[in-house]
Amino acid sequence: MPPIFPGVRENRGVSVQIHIEDGAPPYEQVRAQISEQARSGALPVGYRLPTVRGLAETLGLAANTVAKAYRALEADGVIETRGRNGTVIAAVGSTAEREVAAAAEVFAERVRRLGVGEEVGLAAVRDALRAAFRA
Protein backbone atom coordinates (compact mmCIF):
# COMPACT_ATOMS: atom_id res chain seq x y z
CA MET A 1 0.00 0.00 0.00
CA PRO A 2 1.44 3.41 -0.93
CA PRO A 3 2.38 5.80 1.85
CA ILE A 4 -0.13 8.38 2.95
CA PHE A 5 0.94 11.92 2.16
CA PRO A 6 -0.48 15.12 3.67
CA GLY A 7 -3.95 15.68 2.28
CA VAL A 8 -4.46 12.01 1.41
CA ARG A 9 -6.52 9.59 3.47
CA GLU A 10 -7.28 5.99 2.71
CA ASN A 11 -9.25 3.03 4.01
CA ARG A 12 -7.23 -0.13 4.63
CA GLY A 13 -10.01 -2.60 3.64
CA VAL A 14 -10.97 -0.99 0.34
CA SER A 15 -8.27 0.93 -1.48
CA VAL A 16 -9.83 4.39 -1.58
CA GLN A 17 -7.78 7.53 -1.32
CA ILE A 18 -9.20 11.00 -0.94
CA HIS A 19 -6.95 13.70 -2.34
CA ILE A 20 -7.98 16.87 -0.58
CA GLU A 21 -6.16 19.06 -3.10
CA ASP A 22 -7.90 17.34 -6.03
CA GLY A 23 -10.64 19.39 -7.66
CA ALA A 24 -13.07 16.44 -7.68
CA PRO A 25 -15.59 16.30 -4.83
CA PRO A 26 -14.79 13.60 -2.24
CA TYR A 27 -17.99 11.62 -3.00
CA GLU A 28 -16.97 11.49 -6.67
CA GLN A 29 -13.49 10.27 -5.74
CA VAL A 30 -15.02 7.48 -3.64
CA ARG A 31 -17.49 6.58 -6.41
CA ALA A 32 -14.88 6.56 -9.16
CA GLN A 33 -12.33 4.50 -7.23
CA ILE A 34 -14.78 1.83 -6.08
CA SER A 35 -16.28 1.67 -9.57
CA GLU A 36 -12.88 1.21 -11.19
CA GLN A 37 -11.85 -1.45 -8.67
CA ALA A 38 -15.10 -3.34 -9.27
CA ARG A 39 -14.71 -3.18 -13.06
CA SER A 40 -11.04 -4.26 -12.91
CA GLY A 41 -11.81 -7.17 -10.59
CA ALA A 42 -9.74 -5.78 -7.71
CA LEU A 43 -13.01 -5.86 -5.77
CA PRO A 44 -14.67 -9.13 -6.83
CA VAL A 45 -18.39 -9.68 -7.25
CA GLY A 46 -19.93 -10.25 -3.82
CA TYR A 47 -17.17 -8.39 -1.95
CA ARG A 48 -18.75 -6.77 1.10
CA LEU A 49 -18.00 -3.07 1.36
CA PRO A 50 -17.61 -1.25 4.66
CA THR A 51 -20.71 0.40 6.07
CA VAL A 52 -21.30 4.01 5.11
CA ARG A 53 -20.40 5.15 8.60
CA GLY A 54 -17.37 2.88 8.79
CA LEU A 55 -15.89 4.06 5.50
CA ALA A 56 -16.71 7.68 6.30
CA GLU A 57 -14.93 7.42 9.65
CA THR A 58 -11.90 5.72 8.12
CA LEU A 59 -11.59 8.34 5.38
CA GLY A 60 -12.40 11.28 7.64
CA LEU A 61 -15.48 12.19 5.61
CA ALA A 62 -19.07 12.94 6.56
CA ALA A 63 -21.37 9.92 6.39
CA ASN A 64 -23.58 11.82 3.91
CA THR A 65 -20.61 12.08 1.53
CA VAL A 66 -20.04 8.32 1.47
CA ALA A 67 -23.80 7.68 1.32
CA LYS A 68 -23.99 9.89 -1.80
CA ALA A 69 -21.17 7.87 -3.40
CA TYR A 70 -22.88 4.58 -2.51
CA ARG A 71 -26.21 5.82 -3.96
CA ALA A 72 -24.46 6.76 -7.21
CA LEU A 73 -22.70 3.38 -7.33
CA GLU A 74 -26.00 1.60 -6.75
CA ALA A 75 -27.69 3.65 -9.48
CA ASP A 76 -24.84 2.66 -11.82
CA GLY A 77 -25.32 -1.02 -10.96
CA VAL A 78 -21.83 -1.32 -9.45
CA ILE A 79 -23.01 -2.20 -5.95
CA GLU A 80 -26.17 -3.56 -4.42
CA THR A 81 -27.50 -3.13 -0.93
CA ARG A 82 -28.72 -6.28 0.76
CA GLY A 83 -30.26 -4.77 3.86
CA ARG A 84 -28.79 -6.29 7.00
CA ASN A 85 -26.38 -8.31 4.85
CA GLY A 86 -24.56 -5.15 3.83
CA THR A 87 -23.51 -3.58 0.58
CA VAL A 88 -21.68 -5.74 -1.95
CA ILE A 89 -20.08 -5.45 -5.36
CA ALA A 90 -22.67 -6.42 -7.97
CA ALA A 91 -22.10 -8.39 -11.15
CA VAL A 92 -21.37 -5.17 -13.03
CA GLY A 93 -20.37 -6.55 -16.38
CA SER A 94 -23.77 -7.67 -17.55
CA THR A 95 -25.70 -4.82 -15.91
CA ALA A 96 -23.35 -2.15 -17.20
CA GLU A 97 -23.26 -3.65 -20.69
CA ARG A 98 -27.07 -3.82 -20.85
CA GLU A 99 -27.34 -0.16 -19.82
CA VAL A 100 -24.75 0.90 -22.39
CA ALA A 101 -26.55 -1.06 -25.12
CA ALA A 102 -29.90 0.50 -24.17
CA ALA A 103 -28.43 4.01 -24.17
CA ALA A 104 -26.78 3.32 -27.53
CA GLU A 105 -30.09 2.19 -29.03
CA VAL A 106 -31.83 5.37 -27.87
CA PHE A 107 -28.99 7.51 -29.22
CA ALA A 108 -28.87 5.66 -32.56
CA GLU A 109 -32.62 6.14 -33.05
CA ARG A 110 -32.26 9.85 -32.29
CA VAL A 111 -29.40 10.19 -34.80
CA ARG A 112 -31.51 8.42 -37.43
CA ARG A 113 -34.50 10.72 -36.80
CA LEU A 114 -32.29 13.82 -37.02
CA GLY A 115 -30.96 12.54 -40.34
CA VAL A 116 -27.35 13.50 -39.62
CA GLY A 117 -25.82 10.16 -40.56
CA GLU A 118 -23.77 7.46 -38.92
CA GLU A 119 -20.40 9.23 -39.11
CA VAL A 120 -21.72 12.35 -37.37
CA GLY A 121 -23.30 10.19 -34.65
CA LEU A 122 -20.12 8.18 -34.12
CA ALA A 123 -18.01 11.35 -33.96
CA ALA A 124 -20.37 12.80 -31.34
CA VAL A 125 -20.08 9.64 -29.23
CA ARG A 126 -16.28 9.61 -29.49
CA ASP A 127 -16.12 13.27 -28.44
CA ALA A 128 -18.50 12.72 -25.52
CA LEU A 129 -16.58 9.66 -24.31
CA ARG A 130 -13.24 11.46 -24.52
CA ALA A 131 -14.66 14.37 -22.53
CA ALA A 132 -16.21 12.05 -19.93
CA PHE A 133 -13.00 10.11 -19.36
CA ARG A 134 -10.93 13.27 -19.05
CA ALA A 135 -13.19 14.59 -16.27
Results as ranks from 00 to 15, higher is better:
residue 38 A to M: 02
residue 47 Y to M: 10
residue 9 R to F: 09
residue 57 E to F: 09
residue 74 E to P: 02
residue 44 P to Q: 07
residue 21 E to Y: 09
residue 11 N to T: 10
residue 12 R to W: 10
residue 59 L to P: 08
residue 39 R to S: 06
residue 43 L to S: 04
residue 42 A to H: 10
residue 41 G to T: 00
residue 70 Y to V: 06
residue 36 E to S: 12
residue 75 A to D: 13
residue 10 E to Y: 08
residue 76 D to L: 12
residue 63 A to N: 08
residue 19 H to T: 04
residue 62 A to R: 08
residue 73 L to I: 09
residue 55 L to Q: 11
residue 65 T to G: 06
residue 15 S to N: 11
residue 34 I to Q: 03
residue 60 G to H: 03
residue 47 Y to Q: 07
residue 38 A to E: 04
residue 71 R to N: 12
residue 78 V to A: 11
residue 35 S to F: 09
residue 67 A to K: 12
residue 64 N to I: 11
residue 20 I to W: 05
residue 24 A to Y: 02
residue 72 A to K: 10
residue 15 S to A: 11
residue 59 L to W: 06
residue 46 G to V: 01
residue 41 G to K: 08
residue 76 D to S: 13
residue 17 Q to N: 01
residue 36 E to C: 09
residue 15 S to F: 10
residue 26 P to A: 07
residue 7 G to K: 05
residue 26 P to Y: 06
residue 21 E to P: 00
residue 31 R to D: 02
residue 56 A to I: 04
residue 67 A to G: 08
residue 21 E to M: 08
residue 15 S to V: 11
residue 42 A to D: 15
residue 16 V to H: 01
residue 47 Y to F: 15
residue 19 H to V: 14
residue 23 G to P: 13
residue 36 E to L: 10
residue 42 A to E: 15
residue 18 I to T: 05
residue 68 K to A: 15
residue 48 R to Q: 12
residue 71 R to Y: 07
residue 14 V to Q: 02
residue 12 R to P: 15
residue 45 V to D: 08
residue 15 S to E: 13
residue 59 L to G: 06
residue 67 A to M: 09
residue 18 I to Q: 01
residue 8 V to P: 00
residue 47 Y to T: 07
residue 14 V to I: 15
residue 20 I to E: 15
residue 35 S to P: 02
residue 33 Q to R: 05
residue 49 L to Y: 04
residue 31 R to Y: 15
residue 78 V to C: 03
residue 31 R to W: 11
residue 75 A to V: 04
residue 66 V to W: 00
residue 40 S to A: 10
residue 59 L to Y: 01
residue 58 T to K: 12
residue 73 L to K: 02
residue 63 A to L: 01
residue 66 V to I: 01
residue 38 A to C: 11
residue 76 D to M: 09
residue 11 N to D: 15
residue 48 R to Y: 03
residue 30 V to E: 08
residue 46 G to M: 05
residue 36 E to D: 13
residue 40 S to L: 09
residue 76 D to H: 06
residue 76 D to N: 11
residue 34 I to E: 05
residue 68 K to Y: 08
residue 42 A to K: 13
residue 67 A to R: 15
residue 31 R to S: 08
residue 71 R to S: 11
residue 19 H to F: 15
residue 30 V to Q: 00
